[in-house]
């Protein structure tokens, strides 16, 4: 080996982009994750479009369904997908190894967020296309706020996913994130609006990240309105989970 010694780091944006791309590809190639990220949301979308569950909520079935499904996608990818991936990477020492490379801990976290956003973009593309075939007509005034809300939702759920992944064993992360995905997906105000939930749940879901993201996205994409309280709840969850993850995340 006659190469000269003395490494130098690639530029920061390149390191983060590489890690984001690598993790996004890993997620998309994982069959279970793909079911959670694409197949189940698509099934839910079709299910909500062919049943009368969402009738009488101020829009066509598909118009009311799509925002919730997109919110569900953010939860699949940020919380369950990234949570499980990070939990097992932590078990196998991958987080520790990568943090010794020029990527570092900050770059690794940034890469993880980027990976979630990349997969989320793919989900939006697939769900949006199928929804368009089903007759989805989003409120044009709500498209840009909706996109921003999805990014915020992705951030909130990624922070929560990393918090779980960094504090408990990967098997527990697997159980917790899958269970919460089902519970919040069904009863968390994400795909089924609060007014269609049992009385006790109605008030609670406004304070959940799932309910807040679902409500805010519906208000944006159905009515073209900004739901400030829901945005505030979402930001609060992101901040609390972010600070908690920074504080308690164990790298090994």
């Amino acid at each position: 080996m006659n190469a000269t010694l003395g490494g130098a780091p690639a530029p920061l944006f390149k390191r983060i982009a590489l890690q984001g791309g690598y993790e996004a590809l890993t997620m998309v190639r994982n069959g279970e994750q793909l079911i959670l990220a694409i197949v189940l949301p698509l099934l839910a979308l079709v299910g909500l479009t062919v049943t009368p569950l969402l009738d009488g909520l101020g829009g066509s079935r598909v118009d009311v369904a799509v925002p919730g499904i997109l919110a569900l996608c953010a939860m699949s990818t940020g919380f369950t997908g990234q949570g499980i991936a990070t939990g097992f990477d932590r078990r196998y020492g991958v987080l520790r190894f990568l943090s010794t490379t020029p990527l570092g801990r900050t770059g690794l976290i940034a890469g993880k967020i980027l990976a979630v956003l990349a997969v989320l973009a793919l989900q939006v593309l697939v769900i949006g296309s199928v929804a368009a075939i089903l007759g989805w007509q989003p409120n044009p005034a709500g498209l840009l706020p909706g996109l921003l809300l999805l990014v915020m939702g992705g951030a909130a759920f990624t922070a929560l996913g990393l918090l779980v992944a960094g504090t408990v064993r990967p098997e527990a992360t697997l159980a917790i994130t899958n269970l919460l995905w089902i519970l919040l997906g069904a009863l968390g105000g994400i795909v089924i609006p609060a007014e269609r939930l049992p009385g006790a749940a109605q008030h609670l879901v406004h304070f959940l990240p799932s309910g807040a993201l679902g409500e805010a996205l519906r208000d944006a994409l159905v009515h073209g309105a900004v739901n400030a309280p829901a945005v505030l709840v979402l930001l609060l969850w992101t901040a609390v989970a972010g600070v908690a993850a920074t504080r308690w995340f164990k790298w090994n």
Partner: peptide, 8 residues
């Protein structure tokens, strides 16, 4: 690293 640290 002792445990390799490579994704399985």
């Amino acid at each position: 690293l002792q445990d390799g640290g490579l994704p399985p």
